[in-house]
Amino acid sequence: MTRRPLLGRLRAWHLAAGAALLAVLAAGSLFVGVGDLTPAGLLHGRPEDLRVLVESRLPRLLAVVLAGTAMSVAGLVMMHITGNRFVSPSTAGTSESASFGVLLATLLAGGEAVFVKMAVAVAFALLGTFFFMWILRRLTFRDMILVPLVGIMFGGVIGAATTFLAYRADLLQSLGAWTSGDFSGVLRGRYELLWIAGAVTVLGYLYADRFTVAGMGRSFAVNLGVRYDRVVNTGLVLTGVITAVVVVTVGEIPFVSLIVPNLVTLALGDNLRHALPATALAGALFVLLCDVAGRVVRFPYEIPVSTVVGVVGSVVFLGLLLRGRRTGLR
């Protein structure tokens, strides 16, 4: 008997069901929090409730969905253009480089200039990623595990430099804001940059087929008339921008860009035309679930989303690694 892929072909109704689930969860999440907000209050048009919704809950929901979607898609694209399913913005030094950029911008331009911070973070995220790719091209081994390990080490070095600099400049406390992602500070007017990440994600969908072809490797890509280097660079810029924007607005969220695309492609295969929308949806769902869990577990206090994701993510990642070892890491 032929063994079929886990879910077989992705059908429109799979995505629709996922979207419906996300909608229900999203609506529910609006009523989780310390501030007074109830469905009844909203129905009666209580101004207090409306204010909480518009100023805090809705922005937070949008931020969660945008960040989850964008980070997951960034990871998916990166694993294709590097040909390694464990290479993602969090294992290639991209996030750490972005954090370093935010710190430098804060040191040089003060804490207020958001656009300056973002621009510098994007620049450093790209610099870090391209440097990692430069290392990658010079590595003689292509081991599925060793390559991301090199990326993690590279990220560790940059993270250490960032911490050192922050310590000397007495900015360790602010540093925590970018290195541990948290949605609790999201208010209207403080998350809108994430729409940029959302827009870049949509652009990524337009490139889906070319990313898949690039994932086949250089020879196949050239044979099919795809400009391999250009597609790879486009993908790197896309991941760099998304990562930097997320780091600047809510901080680093570990593992999302690694485990969500891995789980989705495990079920659906690597054809991005199908896998990309599913990854976007799954990323939003995953981060939303983690954020709500963080809000509920110690109510009325909050656990940062990066902590919740870290706990869940490390377990899933370990599972993926062990599974990879069993199936010969193809």
Binding site: G83, N84, G215, M216, L224, G225, G269, N271
Partner: peptide, 19 residues
């Protein structure tokens, strides 16, 4: 030809029409 992307046979063959 080592391909790290997981495509189905039909998806792969269909990519021949990409150009």
């Amino acid at each position: 030809n080592h391909m790290s992307v997981r495509l189905t046979v039909r998806e792969l063959v269909a990519f021949g029409r990409f150009p």
